[in-house]
Design a binder for these strands. Structure first.
Length: 421
RNA sequence: GUGGGUGUAGUUCAGCGGUUAGAGCGUCAGAUUGUGGCUCUGAAAGUCGUGGGUUCGAUUCCCAUCACCCACCCCA
């Protein structure tokens, strides 16, 4: 118990941290290219922020939040999604007063949801996310979708599918809700329990129900897309046109509803296939009312979240993770006990010269030191033995070619620097 | 939250109601004494998830509990 990570959490061990760093670098690069700047928000926020932002009818708020009272009797919650905190930061720091659009991203943001862990689903996971504020037009929506798509493609992930939808705005959604209720009213008794509850408060979520019976009952429901107001319709048309111009293959899926209440107009998901089923790697959309709803100015926004663990999982499952790099460039072997200290000193000098270097810390035999150097994937081994110490030189061995040469000890750093280790 | 499966060495897994619980991989050490990958030899390493029960005796059977995996729910 003591030596067991809490349920639904995962360690990043040394053998996988390199892959994390690789993916993080790609994400930063993608954002930098599109003019997004990094932000970091607290791991916990006032509970009220999520209740008002995410929506009190959502499963996330109703049953998945890590909420507790701190010692000052304040109700705080570990963030269950990334957007609310960024919006809070935007309002508090008056970022909306600067040049718009305000384009922001966050990386490795811990996200907490109390749910039953499963493959690709954790109680603590990490998200990469992108948000843009101030731009009402669909080009930002498309830009972000393209950013996510290109990033995932660049990481080598295969079988990507992009689904988009529009769920309207407060102007047109009530009408759709009415139509939906009218359609479902006579089948209400046959719906599953949760869907009966959804009927009044949030009937669109019924479309998302996975129960076969509910799926059967909703066939033939009116589509949101038929109820969009002129503005929403034009926005959705512009989105599709821009996605086309960007060369992104997409599918309109009127079934995408999303589990967070703040979305308006655009919603989208990027899925891939893994072990039989499909898995959402990215999801997001537009939230034109959220900033105002949380006490800020009237300011449109768009964003998405991408699950870091899911990205890594898919890369590993699809075998597209890049090969691991060698740990060091040069290993300095000491043949005799007398050579250990000079070996360590040489390694230190190499490090100071910018070369990744190491020497034996285990008082091991020369042979064992070579084995260790091999495991570290050192390209070069420098040997210090009786002879070398006597003559003031060092033997350099190229581990790939097995070619050896001798250089003066005081010129060793320069020599190794030149051959790049 | 509901349903199903699995817990044995660092890891992947054998095993059996009965003496000191095994193998591959990994780790460490050797193979005539200054050199890695391959091969060979040897060693270290396990409260058999945890707690109860049945039994002369439980790693094995039963119950509970915890953890992991899978499906649902939901989502990234």
């Amino acid at each position: 118990m003591l030596t067991q990570a809490p349920r639904g959490t995962k360690d990043v061990t040394p053998e996988v941290s390199a892959l994390w760093q690789y993916v993080e670098a790609q994400m930063r690069d993608a954002c930098a290219k599109a003019g997004y700047r990094e932000v970091r928000t607290p791991t916990f926020e006032h509970t009220e922020l999520f209740v008002r932002g995410v929506g009190d009818t959502t499963d996330v708020v109703q049953k998945e939040m890590y909420t507790f009272l701190d010692k000052g009797d304040r109700s705080v919650t570990l963030k269950p999604e990334g957007t609310a905190g960024v919006v809070r930061m935007l309002i508090e720091n008056r970022l909306y007063a600067e040049a718009q659009p305000m384009k922001l991203y966050y990386l490795n943001s811990p996200i907490f949801r109390y749910e039953k862990p499963q493959s690709g689903r954790f109680r603590e996971h990490h998200q990469f996310g992108v948000e843009a504020f101030g731009a009402a037009g669909a080009t930002v929506d498309a830009e972000q979708i393209a950013l996510a798509w290109d990033l995932l493609q660049g990481l080598g992930i295969k079988d990507l599918r992009l689904n988009v939808n529009s769920i309207g705005c407060p102007g047109c959604r009530p009408e759709y809700h009415d139509r939906l209720r009218a359609f479902l009213a006579q089948r209400l008794e046959s719906l599953c329990g949760t869907c009966k509850e959804r009927f009044d408060r949030n009937p669109m979520r019924i479309l998302d129900c996975k129960s076969p019976e509910c799926q059967r009952l909703i066939t033939g429901t009116p589509s949101v897309l038929d109820c969009l107001c002129g503005e929403c319709e034009a926005h959705f048309a512009a989105l599709q046109e821009t996605l086309g111009l960007f060369g992104l293959p997409f599918q309109v899926d009127p079934g995408i509803v999303r589990g967070l209440d703040y979305y308006t107009k655009t919603v989208f998901e990027i899925l891939t296939d893994i072990g039989g089923g499909s898995l959402a790697i990215t999801g997001g959309g537009r939230y034109d009312l959220l900033v105002e709803q949380l006490g800020g100015p009237t300011l449109p926004g768009v964003g998405f979240g991408m699950g870091m663990e899911r990205v890594l999982m898919v890369m590993e499952a699809q075998g597209v993770a890049p090969p691991v790099q060698g740990l060091i460039d040069v290993f300095v072997c000491a043949q005799t006990p007398a050579a250990r200290q000079p070996a360590m000193v040489l390694a230190m000098a190499l490090r100071r010269a910018g070369i990744r270097a190491d020497a034996d810390h285990m008082a091991r035999s020369l042979k064992a030191q070579f084995k260790y150097a091999d495991k570290c994937a050192a390209r070069t081994v420098a040997v210090l033995g009786e002879e070398e110490l006597r003559e003031g030189c060092v033997t350099l061995r190229d581990m790939a070619t097995r070619v050896e040469s001798r250089v003066p000890l005081d010129g060793a750093v320069e020599a190794l620097k030149q051959c790049g280790g």
